[in-house]
Amino acid sequence: MSRERQINIALVIVLLTVPLWAWIKDEPFTLTLCTRMAILALAGVGLNIALGLGGLVSFGHAVFFGLGGYTMGILASHAQTYSPLMESPFLIEGTKSMPIIWLIATAVSALVAFLIGALSLRTSGVYFIMITLAFGQMFYYFAISWPAYGGEDGLSIYVRNGFPGLNTLDPVQYMVLTYALLGIALWFFSRLANSSFGLTLNAARQSPGRVQAVGIRPFKVQLFAIVISAAITGLAGALFADLNRFVSPTMFSWQTSGEIMIFVILGGVGRLFGPVAGAALFVFLEHQLGGLSEFWHIYLGLILLGVVLFARGGIVGTLAESGLKRG
């Protein structure tokens, strides 16, 4: 068994033991923290496809996180006031059903990612980072200035949306749901990374000219990677909004894009469990240090600095390679 695999298993055990302990001790707040971790990790798994496998430094993944959130917010707000989204030419009503919201959130994110990706991929390097950031800011200011759905104040949803057969208001049940989705996403990521598509995407990151020379357009592969990546981050956005029962333009902000990127970099870029380790550390620090000082981001910044300078493989990468001799 490879060392990385051992680390992954250890991580899974910790992340399952904590909520189990919290459940037995009846600590709903810890369960909520675990749920938060799982959702943020899911957003990171999405970004890890574009950033880790594809080397596409998207500084605009908040767009998809926010779109997922607003999809949930808009559909649920219409459902709670019993007013349809539109009546002509055909009737579209709001919904409180999670599966439907998830489906629409992923589809909307994927569609928008297709458009943003098609434009952004004409650039590379710093310009790619800037153009994705610009799209993020466009959505952010649009959300602030659009009064129909709360504008700057955001949008509250009074009751968490439903999932067939589950009581989603029960912290344990909602947590299990988010863990399950995270598990599926991780499984998908590991399959993807080893597939034909993954091989090509990986090669396109290292040497686009080579991919072209064997008869494949890197653009097509990278665009598809962004679309898949966005769909997963969009799903995380919908879950995040449902966790807080609140959506606000903050979900679209560049700070959110940065945080999703931090999960991936802290944990290990391109590593299967990178975003999970990153999100877990983030939520842990947020909780522990956030209690000491509201300026806890200073310490997060120091840790990030340390990782970038001395542990380029992130938490997972550094632990996985510490036992091996380096050539």
Binding site: N194, S196, L199, R210, G215
Partner: peptide, 19 residues
Amino acid sequence: MLGALGSRGNVFRFFGPVL
């Protein structure tokens, strides 16, 4: 493998392990 894949086409397979 990348070369072989490029000449066969059909890059958009997401599940089967390519190796």
